[in-house]
Write a protein that binds this DNA or RNA. Structure first.
Lengths: 121, 121
DNA sequence: TTCACCTGTCAGTCTCAACTTACACATGAA
DNA sequence: TTCATGTGTAAGTTGAGACTGACAGGTGAA
């Protein structure tokens, strides 16, 4: 979970930055749940929940596994993946330096320019 | 920057979770810049940049101030606000507990339920 | 007066994520 | 066979955010 590039960081932030998905995380914090049960608890349609879970899984926030219940039914369980991300200027800059989708094509982003008053150009 | 509720956390995450705004943060990390100059550096239209900056400001990530340059021109400078957010299951749960826009109407979200195999209902 | 800067905002278009409805397909139990 | 349960996906609609272009205003300098 350390040193993600800007692409991964973006996926992570976009995944967590949504009310429904925060609720999913909150619910899964109590332990693994299968999709239909989770949908019932949240009052959300199953296809919609699938989309959110897919997004969370791609971002590495949840892990899904197909499990066979005692009575032979296939249940898709999801559980929280451990994650811990520090978010400040330094970590964002570090991610940007690692490149990724949104990295500027040219290295025009040197730090330390500070020109709050001098005529810029 | 500590103990934000789910609403604030969501605003923060949604603000940072966007490629363009990550680039804005990256650029502002080098020091304050006024809008037109920033727009030029990023190759972004000014109205669009305004929207992003507005969003970042509402989330408390940047601070804008109108400044008068030496030759009497009004320049709108933006600079990074200090921020440091830890993102893991605990901090998200803590934010959810503080309530906010996405908080569930009923307190159905107690942790510690763990029913991965027992018949849920 | 005109030019080259700047701020600020409005009215659009467009794209994509979010969301709904509906289907096909399994299983075990009545 | 039918019902209630589950998975998985393929349509569609919709709504919000992202983005563009054009405007109105201000300044100082040529």
């Amino acid at each position: 979970m350390q040193a993600m590039n800007s692409e991964e960081l973006l996926a992570f932030l976009a995944a967590v930055g949504h009310a429904q998905r925060i609720r999913i995380i909150t619910e899964l914090a109590g332990g693994p749940l299968y999709v239909s049960e989770l949908a019932r608890r949240l009052g959300v349609s199953r296809p919609l929940l699938y989309m959110h879970l897919e997004r969370l899984e791609k971002a590495g926030l949840v892990i899904g596994r197909l499990e066979l219940s005692d009575d032979g039914k296939a249940l898709k369980y999801f559980e929280l993946a451990p994650f811990d991300v520090q978010l400040n200027v330094d970590t964002i800059l570090a991610a940007a330096r690692l490149g990724g989708a949104d990295a500027p094509p040219d290295g025009t982003g040197e730090a330390g320019k500070h020109s709050p008053k001098g005529t810029p150009q």
